[in-house]
Design a protein around this nucleic acid. Structure first.
Lengths: 211, 211
DNA sequence: GTCTATAGTCGGATAGAC
DNA sequence: GTCTATCCGACTATAGAC
């Protein structure tokens, strides 16, 4: 319920401490990916990174603080990594192609699964909820801008406000990943993207765009 | 990790026990909705339903057993409730309208949020994973059949295999609900459905359908 | 079938040695 | 900054009274 309260502001400034901080966040990611939010604890995280349990509290004040830091760092990494590619999108086919590529990478890394678990955890932590929400904003802005360019000058520009489409795309990614965890055998997302590319091609042709 | 193992098969057959079973499942739902999977415990569930903590173990063998029973019952309820309406869908506009109605009801009840939490929890419980997966099947079949009727005779019949569209729709619902929990102030799902109805109208007109 | 009581375990968090 | 040791509360699960 309480936000992160490290002993004194940010206790880490030296180089040694900064590396430990990173290792803790990495371990937290791995723990979320392998065991889910329900399996997270300071001890479980420490086991995943071969670290000492007390370090969680020294560097982040609480388990919740570490989860918040993980959410923040993950979303910054994502935005930095994909800003360029999303910025170049001008057709639906390109948007779908970029989406497919991003999904492939993030799914492989398990990053979307981690986000899903953080979201689930935000039901019981106000601070985590705020951190995840703040982290989503730059991402959805990027997608919204891309959608803006795709529909510009088509009849859909009015019908499908970009915020909503960006929201739909983000929701789709997240939901797909949650279901993917259920049944890892067949990768439905991959075949869905293949179908989407066909539809996107039809759409672009319809509105007179070329890739 | 272990599946449900009630003391002896199904220990409940009398009427009194059956009611307690229901109250436990209701309390489990409420607990998942309010606190998320990370906040679930036999004690927390008991508090939500004003019940005794030991009853969880008598009726379901373990907390995980109760979560599995909740997943199963919830999906049966959902399928029974919406089979009729989905069965009558033949246009995209109808499908979107039914989707909007279902989302409104389920979102209000918190049922989709409960499903999202159960899915998150299935990362750490093989038994729960199986229960949720089994519960999804009748539902996706219904949606797939509806999509089948919608695209029959259009160019999309080839491009968008119904299983994938059903998967996409289910994913979208789930993802939307998870994000909705982040930011309950504006209901993005509602405005998205409004936009979708416009697009659906365009599509139906394009393929020569009328609602 | 439901309750109280309790054994045993695990996790959050801190104190203090190094 | 990192480690060990530890307190304390919450949890799962069971035994046994009612």
């Amino acid at each position: 319920m309480a936000a992160a309260k490290p002993p004194k502001g940010a206790p880490t400034s030296g180089a040694a401490g900064a590396e430990t901080r990173e290792r803790l966040i990495d371990a937290c990611r791995a723990c979320l990916r392998d065991d889910g939010i329900a399996g997270v604890s300071a001890r479980a995280i420490a086991r995943h990174g071969d670290l000492n349990q007390a370090l969680v509290f020294y560097h982040f004040g609480s388990v919740d603080g570490l989860l918040q830091a993980t959410a923040t760092e993950d979303s910054q990494r994502r935005a930095a990594l994909y800003a360029d590619r999303l910025g170049e999108v001008t057709t639906l086919a390109q948007l779908v192609a970029v989406g497919r590529a991003i999904h492939a990478v993030e799914s492989e890394r398990g990053s979307t699964a981690v986000l899903a678990q953080l979201l689930a955890g935000s039901a019981s932590s106000e601070g985590l909820r705020a951190a995840v929400l703040a982290g989503m904003e730059p991402w959805t802005s990027l997608v919204a801008a891309a959608v803006d360019r795709v529909v510009a000058g088509t009849p859909l520009a009015e019908a499908a406000p970009t915020d909503e489409v960006a929201f739909a795309i983000a929701s789709l990614f997240l939901g797909m990943e949650m279901f993917a965890g259920l049944d890892p055998d067949h990768d439905r997302a991959a075949s869905l993207f293949a179908s989407l590319e066909t539809v996107a091609g039809l759409f672009d042709a319809l509105v007179g765009r070329r890739a």
